[in-house]
């Protein structure tokens, strides 16, 4: 087991092992997302309060899940890089950051679009929307900090520290925003009164969430492989690989 993990740390092995996993992951991601979308958008029953507008949930909730998970995995990869100096971990962290920022933006945007039919406004200072917005700024901070360093190694370590500081702060921010919202809440609309979902609604949601996770893993692996080729371009195995293909 440990030998396997140590092997994963070497770019060459990571490149070889991920090549075997990737086709499965991509197939799973596409199959789950396509099934979930068709089921959710066409066959799931309409919500009795919100009508068809509730179907935004099939994009909104998976994106929001990923937005938070990606930050945690980015911080975990940063920690692995800081402690064991495994370069692949940093490459993965660097590749995850833009995806996480995109997912946060998708969650925010779909939330805003959803707000129009349900709340009658594009933006509501709702606790969840607000903490999502802050998460978006945290992602931009990590990406900007990495880009600001001319030395790649220093930028990588700085981004790791910031991701770790951020991951400690995310729960604090989340709970303080919840507290703030309950103090300021205007009696306009509550999510809590909504009835529990029937299986016809939540099974496609579950498929979508799983599909988004597979997509995240597959995309991160694919991008990390590209990054390995870019950073290790001077190594012999990379040259042989590229020349063999050309």
């Amino acid at each position: 087991m440990w030998a396997f993990i140590h092997k994963l740390g070497s770019p060459k092995w990571f490149y070889a092992i991920s090549a075997r996993l990737l086709p499965w992951l991509w197939v799973a991601a596409v199959a789950l997302i396509v099934t979930g979308s068709i089921w959710g958008l066409l066959y799931a029953p309409a919500d009795y309060q919100q009508g068809n507008s509730f179907r935004i949930i099939y994009v909104h909730v998976p994106a929001a899940f990923l937005a938070q998970s990606v930050f945690v995995s980015m911080a975990a990869a940063g920690l692995v890089f800081m402690v064991w100096k495994i370069k692949v971990a940093d490459m993965a962290a660097a590749m995850m950051a833009p995806l996480g920022a995109c997912m946060t933006f998708v969650a925010l945007f779909s939330g805003a679009v959803w707000g129009v039919p349900t709340w009658g406004t594009w933006w509501q200072w709702d606790a969840r929307l607000t903490s999502m917005l802050i998460l978006f700024f945290l992602y931009i901070g990590v990406i900007a900090l990495r880009g600001a360093f001319t030395s790649r190694d220093a930028g990588a370590r700085a981004a790791s520290v910031l991701a770790l500081v951020g991951v400690i702060n995310i729960p604090i921010i989340k709970y303080s925003v919840d507290w703030w919202y309950t103090l300021h809440q205007t009696a306009s609309f509550t999510f809590t009164s909504r009835p529990a979902m029937p299986a016809q609604m939540y099974v496609p949601l579950l498929l979508m969430v799983l599909g988004f996770y597979c997509f995240f893993i597959a995309l991160t692996l694919t991008r990390t492989r590209t990054e390995i080729l870019r950073r290790e371009g001077s190594k012999r195995w990379v040259r042989q690989l590229v020349e063999g293909r050309l």
């Binding site: 802050i134 700024f137 945290l138 931009i140 901070g141 900007a144 900090l145 600001a148 910031l162 500081v165 951020g166 702060n169 604090i172 921010i173 303080s176 925003v177 507290w179 703030w180 103090l183």
Partner: peptide, 20 residues
């Protein structure tokens, strides 16, 4: 400018409870 981008999101809990 980068400092404000890094630090301001982390300041939000303090602002909430201080102003609160």
């Amino acid at each position: 400018v980068l400092v404000s981008l890094l630090v301001l999101p982390l300041y939000i809990p303090v602002l909430i409870f201080g102003a609160g």
